[in-house]
Design a protein around this nucleic acid. Sequence first.
DNA 1: CTCACGGTTCGATCCAGGTCGAAGCGTCCA
DNA 2: TGGACGCTTCGACCTGGATCGAACCGTGAG
Lengths: 228, 228
Amino acid sequence: MKLGPDIVRIAALLGDPARANMLAALMAGQAFTAGELAREAGVTPQTASSHLAKLVDGGLIVGRRQGRHVYFTLASDEVADLLETLMGLAERAGHRRVRPGPSEPALRQARVCYDHLAGDLGVAMLDSLTDRALVQDREGSLCLTGEGAEFMRAFGVETGGLARGRRPLCKACLDWSVRRSHMGGALGRALLDRIYARGWARRVEGTRVVNFSAPGLAAFRAAFPSPS
Amino acid sequence: MKLGPDIVRIAALLGDPARANMLAALMAGQAFTAGELAREAGVTPQTASSHLAKLVDGGLIVGRRQGRHVYFTLASDEVADLLETLMGLAERAGHRRVRPGPSEPALRQARVCYDHLAGDLGVAMLDSLTDRALVQDREGSLCLTGEGAEFMRAFGVETGGLARGRRPLCKACLDWSVRRSHMGGALGRALLDRIYARGWARRVEGTRVVNFSAPGLAAFRAAFPSPS
DNA sequence: CTCACGGTTCGATCCAGGTCGAAGCGTCCA
DNA sequence: TGGACGCTTCGACCTGGATCGAACCGTGAG
């Protein structure tokens, strides 16, 4: 069996704790400098530099120089997908990194998955949209209906511009904690942006946790009512 | 970022060439003995035994004793999913194991993905089914319509029994070579079984390639006409 | 019972690669 | 222009883990 793509290079890149920590940090969707990632991974800057070079070479992340800093982000949301899939399998196989800490429930309720909303609330949002026939599912990639576009416009998202980019408008992304899909793609990102803009929730600095205020959560539930 | 599942253990397991070769072989869906996997990976039986123990411990494969042989299979189709995702990323990142060999086109046209049909023909089959509204897509997991169940019965697949198992009846599985979905799950398996039973195609021994005969291919195209 | 065979365990070897100190290089600021 | 800072390169060190020979164990065959 010497055919097909070479999974070893990529898997080996993910198989080192320092690199995995860096990638986990980058799952927050924002760009980090080399130094920040070094601290995140708990290694010296030299070591981090070596790891980052390997990750760039492997096509998992990209770096942009800006002044004397270098900002790194995941290379694509495909990479984020892979990381979520891996986390799902690890979760199910019972490999926890540490025993559930205090912020673990918050992470399960709402977090960013690269640049869109994941966790209980992310799944609830997609459920609500599909239940009201605002989005439909065609062969794995979601598809906005006419009423859906109407809804999005009212919510403050111009879907016309989003569809122009080469990134798929919306896309089902499997959630590792809930084991069901939430909304990804350009629309997923735009929705989360609107949620921030309306002040319903804020990112907890340095983590993937998305913190909803009490009125924000109520407004969210009203905008995306549960199917039940 | 010390929260969430531990992806390192699993990724490290996949990051060794010998283990990756074994898993790639197991993607063919059939069970292999420890010795066969050792030859497949190009290592001695002792080394293979050590690797297999690690893979079992990590929950990626399971082994069953039978006489003086031990048969190994992938632990779940989730593992197969992960491998396909990894292959997709590796393919796109341009990491090929070897330069495309002679059987590469055959692998792209039709192969087994664990236990269901993948490649051009696998994608075409799902396309045909969705186009004729025989299956629908709800939040990532496919769903058979009433007419779909009718169609399956006519094709020789009793969907009633399949739905009883704890494995999802059907499921979209992202194809690494085509980068679109094909049909997985219990129904995907049953469909491939029927294709074998009707003599349309056979597995090429020891590889993932599925070889359609000329009349078999014609019958396949007739049963699953292209949407165009 | 004895032997052959598949699989595992043990121990020793060896090497890829992670790690960090020191030095180099470019950018920004005073 | 000098100095601080962020990042990278180089070199040396060291450890984890892959590998295999040899011995061991259980099953099946003669």
